[in-house]
Amino acid sequence: MDKTILTVENISKNFGGVAAIVRVSFELQEGELLGIIGPNGSGKTTLVNLLTGFVKPDSGTVIYQGRNITGKMPYKIAELGIARTFQMVKPFYQLSAFKNLIIPLYSSRVKKLRGGKYGDRDDVAIDLLEDVGFERDSFVPYKIASSLPHGYLKRLELARCLALRPDLLILDELFSGMSMSEVASTLPIIEKLNAEGLSIIMVEHRLKELFRIAHRVIALNFGAKIADGPPRTMMENEAVKAAYLGSEDED
């Protein structure tokens, strides 16, 4: 954990006068698992959108692996190895689960990584689904996405990212809407990915689970960074407490 993979410097974004992100800076080391927390509307998803190019920042820079990727197109950023999940899962509903993964597997990034033509995409897709907990020998991987339960869709979303063989994975509230057992079965998958050296940014509302696996946590409130440190310090942090519970002098 000595090499910086992502550097965010003073990034800001306004939506018509509403400051969604205010001069946020942080660094991510290679292989680090960084959590991002904050109350509703604190700008977590906007930050993810800024990092992945879906929203262009008003000011500030994002440096990834020594490259300035500020304001690049989303597909260019994904091609460089940043994969993201969406908070609102929107799979390709009319395709079966494994065919959902054919789409990222078709990208030039995957072709490049494998060297030349990518072999049998279907098999790779089924393998990926098995990695995120789809039962291989069942019908589940072959079911049409619109018929899958929400927990599976979330994990399908994760598999869609892993198909890119990313260097940095950004999970936008992966656990929201998952049942306790689904979370319990997904946590080890993320821990394993991280142990294999994948850098991960997790935006999460489920603090207990996040704090168990995160190396470091950043707290946002009203678009500004209010705390940065190891998870165990977060619960004692006055600013974080105030953001979640409301401070006394507020009213």
Binding site: F54, Y75, F92, L95, N100, P104, Y106, S107
Partner: peptide
């Protein structure tokens, strides 16, 4: 399949480096 993906959810296709 990529074409159909664009119809269903173009943002997810974009984040698939396409």
């Amino acid at each position: 399949l990529v074409l159909q993906g664009i119809r269903d959810n173009d943002r997810a296709v974009m984040s698939g480096a396409i």
